[in-house]
Simulated scan of single mutants.
Amino acid sequence: MATVSYAARDSATMLRRNLKKALRYPSLTLTVVIMPIMMLLLFNYAFGSALGEGIGGTATGGGEYIDYVAPGIILMAATSGAVTIAITVCMDKTEGIVNRFRTMPISRSSFLTGHVVGNVIQTMVTIALVLGVALLIGFRPDATPVEWLAAIGLLALLTLGLTWISAGIGLIAQNVETASNMPMPMTFLPFLGSAIVPTDSMPTGLRWFAEYQPFTPIIETLRGLWLGTEIGSSAVIALGWCVALSLVGYVWARRTFKAGLKR
């Protein structure tokens, strides 16, 4: 029990360190926030009329195109947040902070735990800001409180999985530039799913990829929870992907960190 309390105390210290660092250097966080907001405004105002007419009212739950595109862009806020932790973990590694922590009487697990929990908090704040902008420009979900909680829980679980994977990326990256570029495919993968248009409108090969990649069932589940569209088996598949990403990312990041300590 004492060991658990010891690790929790050190993790909380690392969490405070990372949150204070984020407040002291807000430019990275602002960049992550601005990108999905710009995407939301772009697709709603520049392409919304044409795309909305193309996909019809069924796919949007009977609403405007903003109702269709908002869940996908909100999910993009979660993928964009993954870039932040890859950069911050790599910075600590390359600047020698990790070597200092090795000489201190602290829990070895606290370094990654503090980074991951801090990034999840920052990313959920980003998601809230993007959701707020979506509501301001016309997004009109009709979800019940339970459905809202389910949607937020799904986004939090996805954020946790992506954060652990990106923490591992930060540990293996040789420099900050590499760490910032490696998670980028995750940021744009929702575009190759149902974030912008239904998968039925895509060519056969792309449609197959879009239907079986992780983000499509998550987006469809969010749409179903917020707008009442058909969810089907997407919820189970989405939950499975989120759990799998979390487990794989956790194991990989922890093993990579331990291997680095042995060098």
Rank of each mutant, 00 (worst) to 15 (best):
T229N: 11
I219F: 11
P203K: 08
G205S: 13
S234F: 01
P198Y: 03
D200V: 09
F215L: 13
P217H: 02
L192Q: 05
P203F: 10
L222M: 15
L225N: 13
L192H: 01
L222W: 11
T199R: 07
Y212A: 05
F191Y: 15
I237W: 04
S194C: 10
Y212I: 10
V197W: 09
G224D: 05
T229G: 10
F191E: 12
E230P: 05
W208C: 00
W226L: 15
L227I: 02
G232E: 07
D200H: 09
R207M: 08
T221A: 05
G224A: 07
R223Y: 03
G193I: 02
A195E: 13
T199L: 02
S201V: 14
S233L: 04
T229H: 13
L192K: 03
A235N: 07
G205W: 14
I196W: 11
I196C: 11
W226G: 02
I218A: 02
L227G: 03
F191K: 12
P183E: 00
T204K: 10
L227H: 06
L222P: 10
F191D: 13
P198D: 03
I196G: 07
S233N: 08
P203N: 08
L189Y: 00
P190M: 06
T216Y: 06
E230Q: 15
V236Y: 04
P183H: 02
E220P: 00
D200M: 09
G224Q: 10
W208Q: 12
I218K: 02
A235E: 07
E211Q: 15
A210C: 13
L222Q: 12
I218H: 07
A235Q: 04
L225P: 13
F188I: 08
A210H: 13
P217A: 05
A210D: 09
T229A: 06
L192D: 01
P185M: 00
L206M: 14
T204H: 10
I219D: 08
T204V: 11
V197Y: 11
M202I: 07
W208G: 00
A210R: 11
W226D: 04
P214S: 08
W208H: 08
S233I: 06
E230C: 03
P214H: 06
Y212G: 05
I196R: 10
G193Q: 08
F191M: 15
F215A: 06
F191R: 11
L206T: 09
I231T: 13
L189V: 01
T199M: 02
P198V: 03
M186G: 01
I219P: 09
G193E: 03
L192G: 11
R223F: 07
M186V: 01
A195D: 13
E220N: 15
G205L: 15
F209W: 11
E211F: 03
T221N: 04
I237F: 03
T204C: 00
R223C: 02
V236K: 01
R223V: 02
P217G: 05
L192I: 12
T199C: 06
L225M: 14
